[in-house]
Write a protein that binds this DNA or RNA. Structure first.
Length: 218
DNA sequence: AAACCGTACAACCGCGATCCA
DNA sequence: GTGGATCGCGGTTGTACGGTT
């Protein structure tokens, strides 16, 4: 039996008031983040530490970027989700000013629905069988170099060195060793079948490549 | 005008990971 | 090495709000 994170008695729940927000902001501005367990008492809040942490990280932090997601942010979320799955914290880490909660909510309320409408399974990014799609689907893997395995798709280049120890690097997305390890552990062979949207009449130059076949086997 | 429905998003909950005495 | 405390994450829920019937 797990002990509760805080005393349920005398604890506020639900939406935060302006006064509560101010107390938390004032306290953190003076004392900094951390020790969430002791912050409520020290700041004079009738909240549990977890609630304070969440409120600060997802809403009150000064560097949070609020508002609608740009198209390039959405594209990046889709790409990273295809690679990392529901690892929202990792995905959010690639989007400056966005929180994991925000990314997760945006995925569930916008992107997920959008992919389903396009006939793409949002869980595995594969086109549904038999879906009457107006999209081209094609394999876009490039040839491997003699030393490294490499796939380059629309700014998303995955490189794996022989030793399997170097970082993945590309022009817009790079992965730390830890992230690389997560990718490797989640699947030794990712087959990410995405789609390319037909170019619109006024956008015939740069179709968005959406089909990826990534083989991470070393 | 009221009831209903769908969407967006803030917040909560449970659990695994990590820290530390 | 062990167990409790704390942290961080992802899934889920609750609710406000706008649109539709």
């Amino acid at each position: 039996m797990r002990t509760p994170c805080c005393d349920k008695e005398n604890i506020n729940k639900g939406a935060w008031s302006k006064q509560e927000d101010k107390k938390l902001i004032d306290y953190i501005q003076v004392h900094g983040e951390g020790c969430w367990g002791s912050i409520p008492k020290a700041a004079g809040l009738h909240r549990c530490g977890k609630s304070c942490r969440l409120r600060w990280l997802n809403y009150l932090r000064p560097d949070i970027k609020r508002g609608i997601f740009a198209q390039d942010e959405e594209d990046l979320i889709i790409k990273l989700h295809a690679l990392l799955g529901n690892r929202w914290a990792l995905i959010a880490g690639r989007l400056p000013g966005r929180t994991d909660n925000e990314v997760k909510n945006y995925w569930n309320s916008h992107i997920r629905r959008k992919l389903i409408k396009m006939g793409i399974d949002p869980n595995n990014h594969k086109l549904h069988k038999g879906f009457p799609s107006p999209h081209h689907v094609f394999a876009a893997g490039t040839s491997s170099s003699s030393c490294d395995k490499e796939r380059n798709i629309n700014n998303l280049t995955l490189i794996k060195s022989k030793s399997c120890e170097e970082e993945y690097i590309n022009s817009s997305v790079s992965f730390t060793k830890k992230e690389t390890s997560i990718i490797n552990n989640s699947s030794s062979s990712l087959n990410l079948e995405l789609t390319i949207a037909l170019p619109s009449p006024n956008d015939c130059e740069s179709p968005k490549i959406r089909d990826i076949d990534i083989d991470l086997n070393c």
